[in-house]
Design a protein around this nucleic acid. Structure first.
Length: 876
RNA sequence: GGGUCUGUAGCUCAGUUGGUUAGAGCGCUACAUUGACAUUGUAGAGGUCUCCAGUUCGAGUCUGGACAGACCCACCA
């Protein structure tokens, strides 16, 4: 037998073990030897953005998902864990743009579309390779043969087909409406890509014809076409429906007065100016009341040519100039300083959002479709959450999903970003697709450019969520694997997937879109369960970010402590859906646990040169109380861990494992085993521990397995243990526990009186409730753990009483005080429990079990009290 | 403005359908240490479970309210 090193060195083994798994081909479920009817278990990795390397959030995703995959693979499922990456169009474009500006002082426009995209691809090849390498480091059992990228050829096919199908159904349409426009990115943003930051500005009260009204954006007065008031507002009742000429800095203009509930009568003067082209509320009002729209701000965020002398100014410049002019012309009533309001900014670049009317592609979420049984995407997506076809963990996120979905508007899917999926759309004239252009000539929607001259492809690209929304099925070969409404190949085998596991922060952005897309394309849900984890925060509870410099790089931690320690620290000590704090200390403590496991193995092999792992054990092999106890404890653990994992309670399962391995097996059983030498039980327990721990800590468990079996089989594809109920022995557990308590008491006394550990203490027992217990106490020689001399044990009569021969070492007064406290405590408990049992209502309504427990308790307290009292008396 | 979550030991958090004297890790204190493990062991101290009211025989757990913190959604001109 080879000498086993004292500590487990993850850096030495992890890469080798990973390639062993990979080479075995078992990551690919097609290579698992399974019965034909084996159920599939699929998780598709939420694709990390190729903007950067992996962070702890990703590490957490992989730890959880790979745990589920390994658990189910061992349980005999056709487990598929499909890896991939996301092109993250706008995010990536911005990262590369920033880099370009920094390195070469160039903007993307300086470079031109083609050259710029080359830069993007150069960049993403590097980050993508890094990400995939890091996913391997995390130990993810990914089927690399199915790896996907949201912008590769197969996914391009899928996006194109999806758009064409949706177009054929009239689900996507081109429309001009107000959009969130980022003047810096020169692109639209989805509602949820807009971030609101509180800003303190000015509120201008302006004289506005017959009105005085308050606005924070006086420059938009140039685009006003109405004034709105709250319906029934007495101050303005007579004016509603009438038209007024309003004097302005560029002369008079006409407005209509309308009544609309969107107006807050308590704000300002209760009347608001309506600028339909540059405000969402105003746009909605104008639609309802049929009011004209006048655009005055262009896609550069500048005032348009219809703004007279203000044309060409940015909105901020125009505001200054217009306010100055208004001042001169006496339009300003007064200006309120320190006005708090929320400023809309771009979540990618931070520039101020300008709402402007723009021609874009939209996805109609309320349109009823034949293929959805006459329901709309929104209705269908709500239905599957409400009827529990898709289950959310924790449950509370169901409500958040439903609320969000209920309020969903048509989704703007086009972006004026260069990097992304192109639209299968052509226009006859390239100039026609300008945001400010009023008219379109010819549009052609199709896979390839139509014949004829002058057709130019739509320069826009898809919202990145459009392609990631298809992730659950585009990765499984849709549309090739979907003919005549029938799934074939991987799609038939693995869709719908079982679990989508992701951070709760993208529940709305991503999860909801995947649900709609899958319902549309396949008429089925994309996944059965949605498990949402919290964010990983630093030790102070702050969000980790590069700018703050408080981020922990998972790869540094793996280098330092090993992957298993990182995985364990991400899995244990957190609750689903709640944020968790992580510190280096926590990871270090799990490294210690891994070392513990290693040394358990080391002990087993050292203790018995012929040590073997054992699959099954029978009653005959259990030679002692401690054998029966640990085996019983273990089989209960198998049940509990399995149940908890089935319920997504990873933390609880992990904690139980840890406690069993460390506190029961290592601290107690191993010590006793040093005297009993039952290596069969060691082999049995270690076999189960390795299997149960494998999904949590795959590397060390596999390493030990490989060493034990000399490479003949792989733990990753071993069978998950099933509890053997015949081996659960409650009596043995109770007996052992009482022994543990005796030992603990002795240790306690020893420590309190500072008794030299080298000295042996004599233990006398006068009466024995159970003769056997004391005999066992002697037999398993617990003096190894507490150094007592059991020769002094005397068994007589019914009750146990242990007296330690330590009187010469004991501080009588101190001991009396301690016993007095204990006696008072017990007396209190007896009164309390007695009262409870004396309560008629309790006896009437409490379940029998609880009553029995309390009766037993009362008796136990009484017995204990007697012992303590006798001890107290003896001290005199 | 609407909503969700969190509040348990010095710190970080568990606590499954209400039912043992409320748990763990870290930290702290004391002691130990050559043979699986100093990445260790043993023991100890430390909690009016944020507060108030209610339901109940019984509340950390359920209900209502208050306070504090985090977040989400909507955005108000």
């Amino acid at each position: 037998m080879q000498e086993i090193p004292k500590t487990y060195e993850p850096q030495k083994y992890e890469d080798k073990i990973y390639s062993l798994w990979e080479k075995s081909g078992k990551f690919n479920p097609d290579n698992l030897k399974l019965p034909k009817n084996a159920k599939p278990y699929t998780i598709i990795l939420p694709p990390p953005n190729i903007t950067d390397k992996l962070h702890l959030g990703h590490a957490s995703i992989i730890a959880i998902e790979d745990l589920l995959i390994r658990f189910h693979r061992m349980k005999g499922f056709r487990a598929l864990y499909l890896p991939g990456t996301d092109h993250a169009s706008i995010a990536t474009q911005n990262v590369v743009e920033k880099k370009l500006l920094k390195d070469q002082g160039l903007t993307r426009h300086d470079l031109g579309r083609e050259k710029f995209l080359e830069e993007v691809w150069k960049f993403l090849r590097v980050t993508q390779a890094t990400i995939l390498k890091q996913a391997r480091k995390m130990g993810g059992s990914f089927d690399w043969s199915r790896e996907a990228f949201t912008l590769d050829a197969q996914r391009k096919k899928a996006v194109t087909k999806m758009f064409l199908d949706m177009h054929a159904e009239g689900l996507v349409y081109r429309g001009k409406r107000i959009v969130n426009w980022c003047p810096r990115c020169k692109s639209t943003l989805a509602d949820d890509e807009v971030e609101y930051n509180e800003e303190i500005g000015k509120l201008y009260w302006i004289r506005y014809g017959p009105f005085v009204l308050a606005t924070s954006r006086p420059e938009t007065k140039l685009g006003d076409t109405a004034v709105a008031v709250y319906p029934g507002d007495k101050r303005y009742a007579k004016m509603v429906g009438k038209k007024y000429m309003i004097p302005g800095v560029l002369g008079e203009f006409e407005i209509t007065v309308v009544a609309d509930k969107a107006v807050d009568p308590k704000f300002g003067s209760g009347a608001i100016k309506v600028t339909p082209a540059h405000d969402f509320t105003d746009y909605a009002i104008s639609q309802k009341h049929n009011i004209a729209l006048k655009q005055i701000i262009d896609e550069d965020g500048k005032m348009m040519s219809n703004c007279g002398k203000y044309a060409g100014m940015t909105t901020l410049e125009a505001r200054k100039a217009i306010v100055a002019d208004m001042e001169k012309m006496g339009f300003i009533d007064h200006v309120e300083d320190g006005y708090k309001h929320n400023l809309a900014t771009c979540y990618r670049c931070g520039a101020t959002i300008e709402p402007i009317p723009s021609e874009q592609w939209f996805l109609a979420v309320d349109k009823k479709l034949k293929r959805l049984g006459g329901k709309s995407l929104k209705e269908k997506a709500l239905e599957v959450a409400k009827n529990g076809k898709i289950k959310f963990y924790p449950f509370r996120f169901t409500k958040r999903y439903i609320d969000w979905m209920t309020n969903l508007h048509d989704w703007c899917i086009s972006r004026q970003i260069w990097f992304g999926h192109e639209f299968p759309v052509w226009y006859r004239d390239s100039n026609q697709k300008s945001v400010s252009s009023e008219q379109q000539k010819e549009i052609y929607v199709g896979e390839k450019a139509p014949k004829g001259k002058g057709w130019v492809r739509d320069p826009d690209t898809f919202d990145t969520w459009f392609s990631s929304g298809m992730w659950s099925f585009s990765t499984l070969g849709w549309p090739d694997n979907y003919k005549n409404n029938k799934k074939t190949g991987d799609l038939a085998k693995f869709h719908p997937t079982q679990v989508l596991e992701t951070g709760y922060e993208i529940l709305t952005l991503w999860v909801s879109r995947m649900i709609m897309m899958s319902l549309f394309a396949l008429g089925e849900i994309p996944f059965e369960n949605v498990y949402l984890h919290g964010m990983v925060l630093d030790q102070f509870g702050k969000k980790m970010s590069k700018s703050k410099g408080n981020g922990i790089d998972p790869m540094d931690m793996i280098e330092k402590f090993g992957t298993d320690a990182v995985r364990l620290s991400l899995l244990i000590g957190s609750a689903p859906g709640n944020d968790m704090r992580l510190s280096e200390e926590k990871i270090a403590s799990y490294r210690n646990f891994v070392t513990k496991l290693w040394n358990i193995y080391r002990y087993c092999v050292h203790a018995d040169g012929k040590f073997l792992l054992i699959e099954k054990i029978s009653q005959k092999d259990l030679k002692s109380l401690s054998d029966r106890w640990i085996v019983s404890e273990l089989n209960r653990l198998i049940e509990a861990v399995t149940d908890n994992l089935n319920e997504y309670k990873f933390s609880l399962a992990g904690e139980m494992l840890e406690k069993f391995i460390w506190n029961d097996f290592a601290s107690w059983y191993l010590e006793i085993n040093k005297l009993e030498n039952n290596s069969k039980v060691l082999g049995y327990v270690l076999d189960k521990i390795l299997k149960l721990s494998h999904p949590f800590a795959p590397f060390i468990t596999e390493k030990i397995w490989q060493d034990m079996y000399e490479g003949k089989c792989i733990l990753m594809v071993e069978k998950w243990p099933v509890a053997d109920k015949k081996l659960i022995d409650k009596k043995a557990q109770m007996e052992f526990d009482s022994l543990r308590q005796v030992v603990s008491k002795i240790r306690n006394t020893r420590a309190s009186y500072h008794i030299d550990p080298g000295k042996t203490i004599q233990v006398f027992a006068k009466k024995a409730e159970n003769k056997e217990v004391l005999e066992k106490l002697a037999r398993i020689k617990i003096d190894i753990v507490s150094k007592i001399d059991t020769n002094g044990i005397v068994v007589a009569g019914k009750k146990i009483k242990l007296t330690l021969a330590i009187s010469d070492l004991v501080d009588i007064e101190k001991e009396k005080a301690r016993l007095g406290k204990e006696i008072a405590n017990l007396e209190g408990l007896i009164v309390k429990t007695g009262a409870l049992l004396g309560n008629k209502n309790f006896v009437k309504s409490a379940p029998k079990e609880i009553i029995l427990v309390n009766q037993a308790k009362l008796k136990e307290y009484g017995d204990k009290l007697k012992i303590q009292q006798e001890l107290f008396e003896n001290l005199r």
